[in-house]
Amino acid sequence: MPSSVGETGGGVPRVSPLVVYARGIVRKGVVAGVRRLVLGGVLLCGAAGAATPYRVQAGDTLLGIALRAGVSVSAIRAVNPALRASSTVQLGRVIQIPDRSAPATTHTVTAGQNLTVIARKYGLTLTQLVRANPKYASGRPVPAGARLSIPARQVPVYLTTGRDTVAPAAARPAARSTRVVTTPAATARSASPRSSAAWLWPVTGYTTVSSGFGGRTLEGEGEQHYGIDIVAPVGTPVRAARAGRVLESRPDYQRGWGWTVVIEHPDGWITRYAHLSANLTKQGEWVVRGQPIGRVGDTGRSTGPHLHFGTYLRWNPRDPMSLYR
């Protein structure tokens, strides 16, 4: 089988009850490529004390940071040895913010919601949500009024700094084993996309799609891939496919996206740009069609430099290639 550069964030395995997740490697104490085994949403093995980096801003205090993050001061000190004997934080210093524990709960589905929207709301992968609610594993629609089980989980804490963000060097993985990805069509192909008045191709000059939209096999397991992977060198500018408001501009290692930008467009369309090496826009900012919003990278649950480009209509996944024909 041909090997391929491809993205695995957001994939939904259809068969195996045991799924291996890769933890974001910017987290303190986590070795690049370390994996967690998750069965029914329960951590079986992996790294303890996962944390997310935060650069201290003017006016920050240790207590203030803890209150904003929803964790205790002692928890922050536990993952920052240099702070154990100090009650002050130095301006500009990067400290680690530990994950916050979120208890199991239930969610009542409202009109217009689907599993993708609900998983995103609670910081879960689609796989984790489906595994906690196996009656929907076959892809059956979730009716309004249904009650879903939301498993206990560790939630990364991202404190905004108001600055453009760049993935730390540690988030750019060294060489790793290549994963085998196969799709019903050829795994790697030239897309030959045509930008239209509505949609701009997000990576100018690069048209090879290593993994398409829909069903594929990754390391022997079937899954759904809600987007396309466009192969391009690290650092290549990524441009907004359409004008819109930035919903997210942050690292999302919990769900495998790495550094990601999500844009909401006026007519209900939403686009995701994932595995970036740099984010060039802020949450809440209005961006125009063709504006650079990031740079191609290899962060998150990725097997090599590429852009994951996802398109959604009211959060229902759609094949991006259908918009460029």
Rank of each mutant, 00 (worst) to 15 (best):
P2D: 13
S4N: 07
V5F: 08
G10V: 02
G11C: 13
V12G: 04
R14K: 13
R14P: 02
Y21N: 10
R23E: 15
R23F: 08
R27G: 05
G29P: 11
V30I: 13
A32K: 09
V34S: 15
R36W: 07
L37P: 02
G40F: 11
V42D: 12
L43E: 15
C45D: 14
A48K: 11
G49D: 12
A50T: 12
P53M: 08
R55I: 08
V56S: 04
A58N: 12
A58I: 09
G59A: 15
R68D: 12
R68G: 07
V73W: 03
V73M: 04
R77H: 07
V79I: 12
N80K: 07
Q90Y: 01
I97K: 10
P103V: 01
A104F: 10
A104I: 11
A104Y: 06
A104Q: 13
T105S: 15
T105Q: 15
L115N: 07
A119D: 09
Y122V: 05
T125F: 06
L126A: 03
T127S: 13
R131F: 09
A132L: 10
A132S: 14
A132C: 07
S138H: 08
G139V: 10
A144K: 06
L148P: 05
I150N: 11
V155K: 08
L159P: 04
T160A: 15
T165V: 12
A169R: 09
A171C: 10
A174I: 06
A174W: 05
R176S: 13
R176F: 08
V181F: 15
A188S: 14
S190I: 01
S195E: 01
A197C: 01
A198V: 06
L200C: 05
V203F: 03
T204H: 01
T207A: 02
T207Q: 03
T207I: 00
V209M: 00
F213P: 02
L218K: 05
G222Y: 07
H225G: 10
I228P: 00
V231K: 06
A232Y: 01
P233V: 00
R242L: 00
G244T: 03
S249P: 06
R250E: 11
P251D: 13
Y253V: 07
V262P: 02
I263A: 00
H265M: 02
H265A: 00
P266E: 08
D267S: 10
H275T: 03
A278L: 04
N279D: 11
T281L: 03
Q283D: 03
G284W: 14
V288G: 05
D298A: 13
T299V: 05
G300C: 05
R301Q: 13
S302V: 12
Y312V: 04
L313I: 07
D319G: 08
P320G: 04
R325H: 11
